[in-house]
């Protein structure tokens, strides 16, 4: 049975190969695989988004992902976890983040998958810039802002 050391956590500069990450969590003992796909939107507050650019503090991002996976494994009985985040320019409609979780029973993978994406948005140091036809903005996740206010 897979455990934490087999978790696949990657920051990539190319399109996300989702099949690869689903295969990474496949297991004969798994009754369920839950996946989350985050895709890039073309509008924000009626403004047309031309493209999105992602950057990361890579070594810390991987460490934070590991911490999140440990938290998830402490809370749910999981078999495999795979998380991939894409960097650089991501065209509209493509995947920016992908999560796959396997477990014996579906509720554990469903609940932990939601936890993983919520935690990723709250603490993994990755940034997104939305470029509009006029201007650009560095986005700020509400999940991060709420937590830093609590912490301060």
């Amino acid at each position: 049975m897979a455990d934490a050391k087999d978790d696949v956590l990657e920051i990539v500069e190319t399109p996300i190969d989702m099949t690869k990450y689903v295969d990474a969590v496949r297991d004969p003992g798994a009754g369920a695989i839950t996946t989350f796909i985050g895709t890039t939107r073309d509008t924000f507050q009626n403004k047309e988004v031309v493209e999105l650019q992602y950057e990361a503090y890579k070594p810390m991002a991987i460490l934070e992902l590991k911490k999140i996976c440990t938290l998830a494994r402490n809370q749910w009985p999981l078999i495999g976890i795979a998380v991939a985040h894409r960097l650089g320019t991501v065209p509209i409609g493509e995947e920016s983040v992908f999560i796959a979780v396997s477990s014996v029973h579906r509720k554990d993978s469903l609940d932990s998958c939601q936890f993983l994406i919520d935690e990723l948005k709250a603490r993994v140091p990755i940034w997104k810039k939305e470029v509009y036809s006029s201007g650009e903005v560095w986005k700020e996740n509400a999940e991060f802002l709420q937590r830093t206010q609590v912490g301060s």
Partner: peptide
């Protein structure tokens, strides 16, 4: 020391 502005991954 890393300066971390509000993050926006996902």
């Amino acid at each position: 020391l890393a300066i971390i502005p509000p993050i926006s991954g996902g």
